[in-house]
Nucleic acid binder design. Sequence first.
DNA 1: CGATTAAATAATTTATACAATTTTGGAATT
DNA 2: AATTCCAAAATTGTATAAATTATTTAATCG
Lengths: 219, 219
Amino acid sequence: MEPGTPVRQDELAAEFEVSRVPVREALRSLASEGLMLWQPHQGFRVAQLKPAEAREILEIRSVLEVRALEWAFPHLGPDNIEEARDAIARAEATKSIDEWSHMNGVFHTATLGACGRPHLLALIQQLNNRVDRYIRLLVQRTDYRIQAEREHRAILATIEAGNLAAASLLLEQHIEDTADALDQFLEGHRPDGASGSEEPGTPATNTAFQAAASSSTGD
Amino acid sequence: MEPGTPVRQDELAAEFEVSRVPVREALRSLASEGLMLWQPHQGFRVAQLKPAEAREILEIRSVLEVRALEWAFPHLGPDNIEEARDAIARAEATKSIDEWSHMNGVFHTATLGACGRPHLLALIQQLNNRVDRYIRLLVQRTDYRIQAEREHRAILATIEAGNLAAASLLLEQHIEDTADALDQFLEGHRPDGASGSEEPGTPATNTAFQAAASSSTGD
DNA sequence: CGATTAAATAATTTATACAATTTTGGAATT
DNA sequence: AATTCCAAAATTGTATAAATTATTTAATCG
């Protein structure tokens, strides 16, 4: 669904052949994860990520993944390496974007999962969920995929060589490259405000912030 | 409410004088934020944080706050310093734990808010929400408050002196000290595993000291 | 003709009612 | 005495209906 478009609860309920109650609960979960925006008596809208916001999410993910890699590194064994290599191979082999995205996740889990910090891993996953759609666009509409796969192989190689510092640098660079590619792509494909029922006075970062922070009640 | 206890939707609905529908939606939001656990047809339970998990959350918050401080630092002006100092003063003056916790948040916002990254700030806030109850226990039941206020003043002093590196180190140390204090406190109040009716994945490590945490919402 | 107000329509939100599932209690059996 | 099985109660999950609120449309006035 296009970012910014309001969600009609009736339509979703009809589409999934359920009532509006479970639909609303699902939307509220998505809103808490930052994938939906909510305003009282105006319902839910698909959250949009402006280039600066996408970069911000990826920056956070970068910091956390680098740290997770540092923690996971001492516990990485041949089985993890094998699993990561297999994930890369499958990602490179498939034509399905779903499969590619999934194998990407498997690669990350294989390399970072050994850090022994479930909350950190869940948070990284949640952050990835917020940019996944845009990365899929990159893969489908640009040549980002070639670059990503090359960088994935490079990261795995340095890990295999036991060079944590190099791996961290490559990982950081990989995510930054992704942010750059996304920036460039989103700039070229600006939405023109086709769906936009957005007030021009307040910046979108503000509404997005409110959505993400609406859960945390301030007094 | 005690961690691990199931939430009775009827009771909450009666307490707030609404139906169960909005109660369920609220619980689902809290579950997405990690404050509640949910299992199909078993409803919601209050999420519990084992010492290792609390440390994990604080570790993540440390990484993100240090980064946020680095980004905010160039944009910090006298007004931010003034606001932060005022927050510290109010926190030190008050006897209310609610006020203390709130002023703590103001201090953090004053120092980190200038980073210009709303999603990062919202995420830090959300992480803080997950450990806030336990930090309140530290303040109320140990001498952690003295240490925290001293460290807050030290951080502000280094920021004011323009020493970013020192401020980052102090901030990192401050959060680590908090994790240590929490670890020590939770260890000391461990119920010796008397109740073993929990699944091994999420054992109940704390019941005795939780009574004090129920005094948070007194408006 | 444009702006403003009022009615109507549509959508969200909440409440009530119903269905499905789990838990509990106890009787029968081993 | 412990266990198994079954029925009843309790609780969750969903559907439907009523209410509140926002949006749109029509009409009136300047």
